[in-house]
């Protein structure tokens, strides 16, 4: 057993995913407290070439699990072998589908404790404690592994839990995981890939999100939201009602079965604020809602609640911001 903090570093299109940079920073911070090292487990196309660069993000060492794309769960055996007997204190995984599957398999293979999805992690008296928002955001719980449970404790971290380091240290030392038989967990394969016609915004990285719901009424109804997003350098998101109706791609859905986002500003237009939507945006720093129903549930948790017709207010707001920023319309 040691005091290292391991983290999963997913590579996407040749470079580390945002989650890899966040977890590297989180692992570095926790390792400084625990007296161990931040160790990345990298996977995905480009992981071998990019592993050393994770040093600048906070990693002291990086072990490459795989250099190709594929279901992450097939790497569970390799991750288990890498962790091996010299068990680290904690293992951070992103609370993404890939991260959860790999973490879950590791929990099952090694009988490890797991916490999450969490929104804060700290070390208290040498023990890892994680903070979770549970029961649809109505309760905060702080949890830890049992004192006699094996190490590492697996932590599923929501995006935005840690902030990437800026201009951190040098290159990380890189090694390759021993080859291991993936077994049945490697048997699920991607047999077809169908990319969308047009790329959609990565909501997890947007600082400003203008979200539209059933009240937007149609695909064309999203146009004023697009314009507002443009003047604020933001992205457009949606409720499930709007995504289900086909007005926007599913990838823009925010909520329990969509994206969990943490922008500096979220503006909900024609969204009632159902609990399943709320769990996807409740950690936004500033929430503005525009809704014509004065009793809409979103009015109970928005910071600014504007009662009115979105089709009248949103274009006026876009024009007003253009005026104040001196952008010609």
């Amino acid at each position: 057993m040691n005091n290292d903090i391991c983290f999963l570093a997913e590579f996407d299109g040749g470079s580390p995913a945002r989650s890899a940079l966040e977890l590297a920073a989180g692992a570095a911070g926790l390792a400084a407290e625990s007296g161990g090292a931040a160790v990345g487990l990298a996977y995905g196309a480009g992981a071998a070439a990019g592993a050393a660069s994770l040093g600048a993000a906070g990693a002291a060492r990086v072990v490459v699990l795989s250099d190709t794309d594929g279901p992450a769960i097939s790497l569970a055996a390799a991750a288990a072998a890498t962790i091996g007997d010299d068990a680290p204190l904690a293992f951070l995984a992103p609370a993404t589908p890939n991260g959860r599957d790999l973490a879950a398999a590791l929990m099952g293979l090694l009988g490890l404790p797991a916490l999450g999805p969490v929104r804060a992690v700290r070390i208290e008296g040498g023990r890892v404690r994680a903070e979770q928002s549970t029961l649809q955001g109505t309760v905060i719980t702080v949890s830890e592994s049992m004192a006699d449970a094996p190490q590492p404790v697996i932590i599923l971290a929501l995006s935005g839990t840690f902030t990437p380091l800026e201009g951190g240290g040098g290159a990380a030392s890189v090694s390759t995981a021993p080859s291991s038989d993936a077994g049945a967990l490697g048997a699920a394969r991607i047999v077809e890939s169908h990319p969308a016609d047009a790329a959609v915004a990565n909501l997890e990285e947007a600082a400003v999100i203008i979200a539209g719901g059933r009240g937007v009424g149609s695909a064309a109804g999203f146009e004023p939201l697009n314009e507002l997003a443009a003047v604020l350098d933001g992205a457009v998101g949606a409720s499930r009602a709007a995504a289900d109706a086909g007005w926007v791609p599913y990838q823009l859905q925010i909520g329990q079965t969509g994206k969990v986002v943490k922008p500096a500003l979220y503006v909900g237009c024609g969204i009632s604020g159902a609990i399943q939507h709320r769990v996807g945006m409740q950690t936004a720093e500033n929430v503005v809602a525009i809704n014509k129903d004065p009793d809409a549930p979103i009015g109970e948790f928005a910071d600014l609640f504007v009662v009115g017709d979105l089709f009248a207010i949103v274009p006026e707001l876009t024009a007003e911001i253009r005026r104040r920023k001196g952008i010609p319309s």
Binding site: R100, L102, A103, A104, A105, M107, G108, A114, P117, L156
Partner: peptide
């Protein structure tokens, strides 16, 4: 909300 049970059952 962990989404951990399916993957863990598969592994076990």
């Amino acid at each position: 909300r962990g989404s951990l049970v399916p993957g863990a059952v598969a592994a076990i």
